[in-house]
Design a protein around this nucleic acid. Sequence first.
DNA 1: TTGTAAGCGTTATCAT
DNA 2: ATGATAACGCTTACAA
Lengths: 339, 339
Amino acid sequence: MKVTTLKDIANELGISVATVSKALKDYPDVNKDTKEKVLQIARKLNYSPNQLAVNLRTKQTKTIGVIIPTTVHHFFSKVIDGIIEEAEKKGYLVIILQSSEKLFLEKLQVNLLLDKRVDGILMSLSNKTNEFVHLKKVLSRNIPLVLFDKIEPSISCSKVRIDDKKAAYEAVSYLISKGYKKISHFRGDLNPKISNDRFEGYREALEDHGITYDPSLVYLCNNNTDFEDGYTNAKKLIRENPEVDSIFAITDLVAIGAIKYFNENNIKIPDDVAVFGFSNWFMSSVVSPALTTVHQPAHQMGVVATEILLNEIELNKENTPCIHKEVILPTKLILRESC
Amino acid sequence: MKVTTLKDIANELGISVATVSKALKDYPDVNKDTKEKVLQIARKLNYSPNQLAVNLRTKQTKTIGVIIPTTVHHFFSKVIDGIIEEAEKKGYLVIILQSSEKLFLEKLQVNLLLDKRVDGILMSLSNKTNEFVHLKKVLSRNIPLVLFDKIEPSISCSKVRIDDKKAAYEAVSYLISKGYKKISHFRGDLNPKISNDRFEGYREALEDHGITYDPSLVYLCNNNTDFEDGYTNAKKLIRENPEVDSIFAITDLVAIGAIKYFNENNIKIPDDVAVFGFSNWFMSSVVSPALTTVHQPAHQMGVVATEILLNEIELNKENTPCIHKEVILPTKLILRESC
DNA sequence: TTGTAAGCGTTATCAT
DNA sequence: ATGATAACGCTTACAA
């Protein structure tokens, strides 16, 4: 079936394309009768504007781009949910790309989105991202950019995140308050800010409570900061530090990996080893024992980041200069059975 | 920073836009020297084509649309992963929309994608979708459409799915082979094909093995076919049918809800009640006891559906008529501890 | 080998 | 109140 254009309507009525366009957009300078006739034919022919033409003309696509490390992750899928929800509410469409934790892909994808002329970009940086020319390129093109979750402080744009250090500090302080002393940390990659922040929170909490920081209790998650890491690190931990009494894991996934290892090897949680997670991935409420963790407002993060982005896009349109915001979303401890 | 256009390059070199365009696309009928000069300037000015203009001209967007019930679901996030991966490989971008199980949203979103002039559409239908004019509209516009997972048989387009009935039949047969006799089913919404198919598989397996089908052992999941449903149905089940010995749940999420209820109430799995899930959501390997379930190839489903779609898009371009495929992906039983 | 010009479907300015 | 026309940036048939 042929798609109706303005021209078709114009021909049908024997008037000009210009008038049709104006009629459809309810301009004041067009006769009521013609307006109605146009509307009628438009409905009859099932007209809807070709967005490609509109986009080219108005230089706006009503589309935003999102680059995240992965979609297969409860946290990120919640964020995406929030992004799509908020964007759709305001009439924007969302293109999603996955960097798969690779810097070169992230750069490539920024270019794809720029070529696509998206109105704005939302990003959570890959763990490998240690240079930022691609982000600067976005800014130099005057395309609004909002970083969330895995951000880079040195880039001057709006950011939405949690206070990872504080959250980690609170979690570890809680462990200490419950009497745990040999507290291990399964940390994330060395590069991303969030993993360093959580590590710092862990370390500071120990020192502030008079427990000497012991690097041999810190285990690195190499393998994507994932379930596997938790499992293998738990194994190593028990072998190398049998006197450990608790673990603060960078992520629920890692914590759950550790729990699995403990369950399989008859190590009692929390009696032998307590486990503290991070993210409040909903599955953490379902594992046995249920995981004590830090709630991270994923959905809200998506919504807020998108709100800010769309707002900056609107300001941009009016050429109003905009002040970048840095929003820190509150976290809270979710106490369950694992410590 | 101003964005470079063909005109800029043309001006810089004092040649025509047409020549620049051809040079960049490596047309044979352009002088080697000019070609090189153009390439050089293009690189210097950081040229990359305005896709909006390209799209309008070529009537292709190199973008596909995806409409799914939700992104916050392990199965769908895996599918999305596969879709994005495959699409990106072939140079396509992906717009994702969530119907949130609402028919009116699904319809609206189809229109959004059509207006956006996506080259093709991938859909998993909402549970509420019981009319299909919106799908027919897509086809009448000659836009390739591929349905996956939650499909509608009457629509003539390619489909990718699993054999839900067979998979359910196998699962229930396995339960029977292990000696279970009072087998309950927590079924999904009455409308979607997959939930009816799984129900049919359950019923047939019973009857083929000489067990009378007992409707009072079938519980409906109203609440989105979710964790909650499993929990509350398990509670009801034990109250109403204390002699039950096993459950076949429509989904891992539902199964895990039931497991939680049983764990909390000291009902032993599988000794008191065995539980069989569906999907092999990765969390099912981590709960205690680990869930026996049906593996559903989610990632592969995304990849295959996208392959078919992109293929149809290419054929469409060449005006080659295409034959719709119906691919049935294999499932398998994953035996763990819950039965 | 290069350039001219039409066209994709809109929007918006300026005449009429 | 309506219409002719240019423009958005690119592709491509055709002319030079």
